[in-house]
Design a protein around this nucleic acid. Sequence first.
DNA 1: CTGAAAGCGCTTACAG
DNA 2: CTGAAAGCGCTTACAG
Lengths: 338, 338
Amino acid sequence: MGRVTIIDIARMLGVSKSTVSRALAGHSDVNSETRRKILQLAQKLDYQPNVVALHLKQQRTNTLGVIIPETVNRFFAKAVGGIQQVANQAGYNVIICQSNESLATEKMNLRTLLTNRVDGLLVSVSGETDHFEHFDMVLKKDIPIVFFDRVVENIKTSKVVSNNYEISKEATLHLVKQGCRRIAIMAGPQHLYNSRNRLKGYMDALHESGLECNERYITYTDFRLKKLDELARYLVSMKEKPDAIFAINDMAALEMMHVLKNMGYRIPEDIAVMGFNNEAICKFVDPPLTSIDHPADEIGATAATILVNQLKTGDTSVIERCINSRLIIRGSTHRIKN
Amino acid sequence: MGRVTIIDIARMLGVSKSTVSRALAGHSDVNSETRRKILQLAQKLDYQPNVVALHLKQQRTNTLGVIIPETVNRFFAKAVGGIQQVANQAGYNVIICQSNESLATEKMNLRTLLTNRVDGLLVSVSGETDHFEHFDMVLKKDIPIVFFDRVVENIKTSKVVSNNYEISKEATLHLVKQGCRRIAIMAGPQHLYNSRNRLKGYMDALHESGLECNERYITYTDFRLKKLDELARYLVSMKEKPDAIFAINDMAALEMMHVLKNMGYRIPEDIAVMGFNNEAICKFVDPPLTSIDHPADEIGATAATILVNQLKTGDTSVIERCINSRLIIRGSTHRIKN
DNA sequence: CTGAAAGCGCTTACAG
DNA sequence: CTGAAAGCGCTTACAG
């Protein structure tokens, strides 16, 4: 029978499609008997309005475009969950694109979403993204963007971030308090605002603690970890070998821990290990991994709320929100028993 | 300047919108000078066709709807990756919905996707889904569905599955070969085809090995694991306590391992532990976790390929594909040193 | 309370 | 080679 349209119903009932449209839309000015018949028939035929037509008419699609680095990254998977929750609640659909940490793909995603006429965008940039003109173009078309987590700096849009600087400092200070003096860090790509903040938090913590900041303890990586065992070997080969490692994320921390243990080092007595993201697994490894918990779903939900609000009210004021992360201390850094 | 339409370009160049449309579509029958001017102006104005209009005209949206239980489940995150790869390659967009393992939400998702006029559906059902009429309705509307991984049985559509029965049997036989005689299993919801097959594989392996199948070793769970420590305590409280646990997934296995270790049991000497899904972390825990690897991205990609093919050719023949999983043996089940 | 008409942005037979 | 017209399915001022 194919898909039923308003015209089918009109024809079957001998009324105009205008009337059917009004009845279905719940307008008051329709004869109640006519309305009853229309509603009943629509129900019987399982009529579903063709939103494509509606979108064309209304000049908007009730769809939000989302660009994230990777779905397999649990942080973003959870953020997307928060976004979808808010979006659906507000009557929006969501199209999700993955940049796979590639700038070129990110640009393609942007194009795809614009072609599909999304009403607004939620973006967390790729690890490669070191310039931002492609987003300027979008704003010029009056399509609002809200950045979340991996945000872009010099651009006038709303953003939702977490307190990377503060939490990274807090984590480093915690390591110092545990007696660590030679703290190595796996720093992210420094064109990313987040990564810079995290490194800065680390450095300031060392500085405040009167510790020297040894450049050789800082290694730069991207988020696609390769050759971690090489890195581990490099670190322990140093004359002044680190007594703590602040990893770029939990997977890196866990792999590092595994490699070090196999080399015969004790965690945390010889080397303390700090993760980032607080994945569920942290609790169940040996020793349990200290990490930093981000309310990813809240970050996503907040970003979506801001965007939906801008869309509904037309208000274009720039909002910046910070969602606080928390340091979750576990055995992998617990060197002082009290 | 808002969004540029074909009419804007036509007006600015003093030609008809038909001609603009033809030039942009690359039709050969356009004066080359006219074409040049049109293309140039379109480029300059950053013209992007409004696909919404196109979709209305063409009666299709070039969009695939995907319903999965959860994005935070890495298996599905990877499957979605495979789907997107194939879909984008073939010029399709993807709208992803999560059922959150809830039947009611799954039905809502279906409604949303139909309202948005997706051309076809890729579905992996929720853990609660124990009847399937909602999918019949979709087929009646001539919208093709391809099920993947968690498939629906008595329904005439294409499916992509993995060999749950065989691999579960192989895993169980491996445990037997390692000397395990009292193998406990965490079985999934038995209204799911996959879960039934996995349990069946386990039982048949025991049977073939001449081992008795003790009902008390079988516990039924859903995929949202709660109170695993209680389960662990229950298992070790038995008189004939299990010497192996075949967990429903890796997270369950890892938590189980953690709890058991804390109770003082040695893995695998006292109790061997088998996971399911082969998450990256399996390699880095202590002992490394034996698990079952599914090519999730391949499963997703295969399902998408079948769907896209049906959409492009109109061919409605039912295809069933099986993508084989592999048993990855690691320390958590390695009891016989040779 | 109801219908005819216009219009959202595009494509494509039909004429010329 | 080009334009006018119809049509995809819907909503909504405008008349009555």
